[in-house]
Nucleic acid binder design. Structure first.
Lengths: 154, 154
DNA sequence: ATGATCTCAACAAATTTAGTTGACAAAGTG
DNA sequence: CACTTTGTCAACTAAATTTGTTGAGATCAT
């Protein structure tokens, strides 16, 4: 269960746009230096966000990238899906398409529940939330629980 | 956020052992055919589960694999950690070790909350639960919610 | 001893990840 | 118009990860 560099970069770049003055384009290079993201790679990512309708672009001098929609209407899940596809996959299949035999039959339900819990975080945090530094209460409750911060030693 | 074939195989193999008659070894080949897992790959995985103290082995004729501990004391999270390392990583780092700048500062908390929600499923389902086909109520509630089954169209 | 079974290191093909490169297109400025 | 700035895009690539396979060996019960 890993978040790739690409997905992480995408959310961070989108957060920068969410925090920018509305209507004023932010240059790719400004995003790259602010978030320490390789510029060329970032441009690939921003182009995918544009194709997904999350980002708008302006070419030429004084050009750059802008959010295509309001920061409160785009969730982290939207951004990740735009660059990586489905939020949760098991061996490349969506959880609801699996079927297991014998002793493992109930495992399919575990994956369904897992995806539901992943969604309940990623679909409830918007770019605006991140840019403002104010997460929804249901998410903040988890952050405030000391247990959430403990690394489980293997 | 994907579950690899290896992690999926590991949980399914462990579920087979959890469902077996206690004390009687199950042959690798029996697990492989029951769950449609390539035998050689499965043996690699079972060896890792043995090193993690989850599985016990018996060599020779009438040998095979057994759970080293009670099925109710091993969680899905334990099995996945044994073969894949930490449950949730962002760019190879644990969530609590991240720090972001500027507009993305709050993103670190999102990853913490995400891991907490992943754990609340995977650390609360045991191999016994899966083998019996009876998941904990908090997990089953999510499975019973029709929303959990909908594929989000991108 | 013998056959069944697990052990282990090494190898390897395919895929994914994380980028880089270079030619091009559009927008604004002088 | 020429020129600079910026995004667009396809193609390429190195490294890591995933998903296995192979073959020689160790161990156990009979």
């Amino acid at each position: 269960m890993r978040i790739t560099a690409k997905a992480d970069y995408a959310v961070r770049a989108a957060a920068v746009l969410a925090a920018a003055v509305p209507g004023v384009p932010v240059k790719g290079e400004a995003i790259a230096t602010a978030q320490h993201i390789p510029l060329n790679f970032l441009e690939n990512i921003l182009r995918e966000l544009r194709r997904a309708g999350i980002v708008r672009t302006q070419r030429g001098a004084d050009g750059g990238y802008l959010l295509a929609v309001g920061p409160e209407t785009v969730t982290v899940a939207d951004v990740i899906r735009a660059v990586e596809g489905p939020l949760a996959e098991i061996q490349g299949e969506r959880p609801e398409q699996l079927h297991y035999d014998g002793a493992a039959t109930a495992l399919a339900d575990v994956w369904i529940a897992l995806r539901a819990n992943i969604r309940s975080i990623l679909e409830n945090v918007t770019l605006g939330d991140i840019a403002r530094g104010q997460l929804p209460e249901s998410v903040q409750m988890l952050v405030d629980d000391p247990d959430s911060w403990k690394a489980r030693i293997r």
